[in-house]
Amino acid sequence: MDARRIILTGCGWGAVFGILNCASNVFLLPSAPFISLRPQIALPMVVGITVHPVAGFLVGFVGNIIGDGLSGFGLWKFWNWHLANGLMGFLPGLVRYGGSNRISTVRDFGVLEMSVVLASGASVAFAVLLDVLFLEFMRFPSSFHSWILPAFLTDAVNGFVLVPVLLLPAGRLLITLETRTILLITALLVVAVLSTAGAITWSVWDDLSSPAATIENFYIAGIVSVILLVLGFIAALGFVRKITDPIGELTRAAEAVENGDYDLGHLGHVSARQDELGRLSRVLQGMAGQVRKREEALRSQVQELRIRIDPQRREREVAAIVETDYFQQLKKKAKELRQGMS
């Protein structure tokens, strides 16, 4: 990869990221004085995945400096968070899904989403560690509620939702039966969980100070959302793979038949299923068996190929022709005819 291109892409998208950071700082999360709802976190992640991990790092790192500068937080004050934002672009880019760099299976998609969530967690943890070691801005446990947790929640959820959405038009997320199914289930999951969390937030928005809606309630909603998303997603991965893995196996089996390999014993566990795929698998196995039998029969027929000619019948038929007067005359003239022709 061309280093110039990596740096240019990283800094260019970094500027966009910085401006969006400044703009979104207007909408701070309830009860979190430094953390805004920032959907733009998907930017460094997507650049890291589609271009290069280092480009992803630059988007987060440069962008956060610009954002803090524009927002008046000071260019270097929160340098640990610059590094953390860089890591959020770097880590998902570092994770390659099966070498193809294109997401076409449920496995690839699972790796992608997990890398986004884990990168968010690891980056926030890294920033906190740097703070504890060098800066000491944070106070515990209050910082955990007002800073660390909201940062992780907003980055993880935004990345989880938006990275696949952005990878789709970038051509990195291929629409296959597997990705189509997992996207659908993920979308349903996200809508269900986030609308619930959103409804809770909405209901307590106006009286966040009231005892009925304590800050803890709000955090619980956020944490539960992420837990539900992650658990639901893992369940969805298993569910979809139950459907799509056998299809892949059936396709490979059909390809084997095409190449003349009729031994489909390895389909046994698919055939054992009681659903439609199990039935398809049994039909395929039966079909391969029939084709094998037929081919063997045909082959043995060809091996037995003996050209059987009934000699008596042949003599009879030949005699019927050669004994005619016409033929006798023709035979006498044949040599002469041939010489006369050319």
């Binding site: 000619i309 042949r314 030949v318 022709i321 050669v322 033929f327 044949a334 040599k335 041939r338």
Partner: peptide, 17 residues
């Protein structure tokens, strides 16, 4: 196969080169 056997035989009678 049978019919060709007859033709070949007739061809031999006519001494086709």
């Amino acid at each position: 196969y049978q019919g060709t056997a007859v033709t070949v035989e007739v061809g031999r009678h006519l001494e086709v080169p």
